[in-house]
């Protein structure tokens, strides 16, 4: 409870700081809109030219895109401390300051940043979701809503976990931004389309290593009424948990890394 209060209080302060530069904020928000709008435009243009992708109809593609977009940018918005620039926290000594306070380090990292500019990206994602749901005529039930909510939550945990890998490497002073980007941004680019269109190695990568297929595609495909690989319904709710697993594993590694942290500078 106390932690949530702290998080909300921190967010209030951060938003207050960002509003000190309103023009910059507005411009950056528009920039985000162009970016995500451009990504969505690419999907629209692909649909315009190709109509279908394997067994997936345009509505299905918009729905997949929307789920990825919403979960990715919700994570970027609220998990900015992790997804933003963790190496900077180390370089500027902010991590030292966090270690000096009687709170969990990850809590403080999450409390250290928020990115409300992503709201426009999330809006684009929501638009895609509505469009996809309409076009694919999804019959929403309580279970589907539940699966949808859980899928978003687990995907967020997964994305946060993947970004946290960079933090772990960074603490061991290994430069790995690009490698981790292959998993995070690569995962986003790849898995905004259903995983079954990809050849085996990529499918393996996004099922085992960065299991977007588990947290996003299995439930989304089931919601669309076209279960992935024809798996039974119960798998939907189990596969989802892989997001929690990835986050848990990386979180343990993160704690371990902190004990080997070598603070630089005086």
């Amino acid at each position: 409870m106390n932690t949530i209060k702290l998080y909300l209080h921190s967010m209030a302060i951060l938003i207050k700081s960002q509003m000190q530069y309103p023009v910059s904020f507005l411009l950056q928000t528009i920039a985000q809109l162009i970016m995500e709008g451009g990504e969505f435009l690419a999907v629209l243009l692909i649909v315009d030219r190709f109509d279908i992708l394997g067994r997936w109809m345009p509505g299905d593609l918009y729905f997949f895109f929307g789920m990825m977009s919403v979960s990715f940018y919700l994570t970027e918005c609220f998990g900015r401390g992790v997804t933003g620039n963790f190496p900077m926290l180390v370089r500027t000594g902010q991590l030292d300051t966090m270690l000096l306070r009687p709170r969990g380090v990850l809590t403080q990292v999450l409390c250290s940043a928020i990115d409300p500019r992503r709201i426009t990206c999330i809006a684009v994602g929501v638009l895609a979701l509505i469009l996809g749901s309409r076009m694919s005529m999804i019959q929403w039930t309580v279970w589907k809503v539940l699966a949808f909510a859980e899928a978003l939550l687990m995907s967020m945990l997964l994305i946060l976990g993947l970004f946290l890998i960079e933090a772990v490497f960074c603490i061991y002073s290994v430069k790995s931004v690009e490698l981790v980007n292959a998993l995070t941004y690569g995962g986003r680019s790849a898995c905004q389309y259903p995983v079954d269109i990809y050849p085996r190695p990529l499918r393996a990568m996004f099922t085992m290593l960065a299991p977007f297929a588990m947290t996003l595609h299995v439930p989304a495909a089931w919601i669309l009424g076209k279960p992935l690989y024809g798996w039974p319904t119960w798998t939907v709710f189990v596969c989802l948990l892989s997001g929690l697993v990835v986050f848990g594993v990386v979180y343990v590694l993160f704690g371990h890394a902190l004990r080997h942290y070598r603070s630089t500078g005086s």
Binding site: D51, G54, S176, E178, A182, S189
Partner: peptide
């Protein structure tokens, strides 16, 4: 050189993803 290696791997993954995507699209149409 370290950054270059990481960059190459990242860009390779992106290349594979995009080529796979367009191949899947071409298979249908």
């Amino acid at each position: 050189r370290g950054a270059v290696l990481g960059g190459i791997i990242c860009q390779l993954v992106f290349g594979l993803i995009l080529v796979s995507l367009y191949r899947a699209l071409y298979a249908g149409r």
